[in-house]
């Protein structure tokens, strides 16, 4: 490892930003994948994996990926909820790896809801 310059301090801080955001609970957008038994059976774990690897590849810092229990609509799993900080959560159903990457890029990062996959805006139609 080389000797540090003062500029390196800021660089290291930036490189560790994703990790520190996770520790501080900071995010711009949060993607919550539902991981009940039904979700897992329907492939929710590959959705999570696809998301995390894409975040790594693109070195995205401000998207938080979390999981929670069943969303109550087992027939439409895998499902995920996207929430831009301060905005209304949007639920997506019948997910695939390709769909979640599109949701990550267009909704979580660019702020545009992917209407064709969306189940509901807000959570009034489901129980989660």
């Amino acid at each position: 490892m080389g000797k540090l310059s003062i500029e390196d301090l800021a660089k290291i801080k930036e490189e560790s930003k994703r990790k520190m955001n996770l520790r501080d609970g900071e995010y711009k957008a949060k993607i919550n994948v539902h991981m009940g038994t039904c979700g897992i059976a329907a492939g929710a774990r590959t959705i999570v994996d696809a998301l995390l690897r894409e975040i790594e590849k693109k070195d995205i810092k401000e998207i938080m990926v979390t999981t929670s229990g069943c969303a109550g609509l087992c027939s439409r799993e895998p499902m995920a909820t996207v929430e831009i900080k301060g905005g209304a959560p949007v639920k997506y159903a019948d997910l695939t790896e390709a769909k979640i990457i599109k949701i990550l890029n267009e909704h979580a990062l660019a702020g545009k809801v992917v209407k064709e996959y969306a189940l509901a805006v807000g959570s009034e139609k489901t129980t989660a």
């Binding site: 995390l52 690897r53 790594e56 979390t66």
Partner: peptide, 11 residues
Amino acid sequence: MAKAYRIEVMA
């Protein structure tokens, strides 16, 4: 490339 996680357990 820094690894991405969804949970960190601070033990």
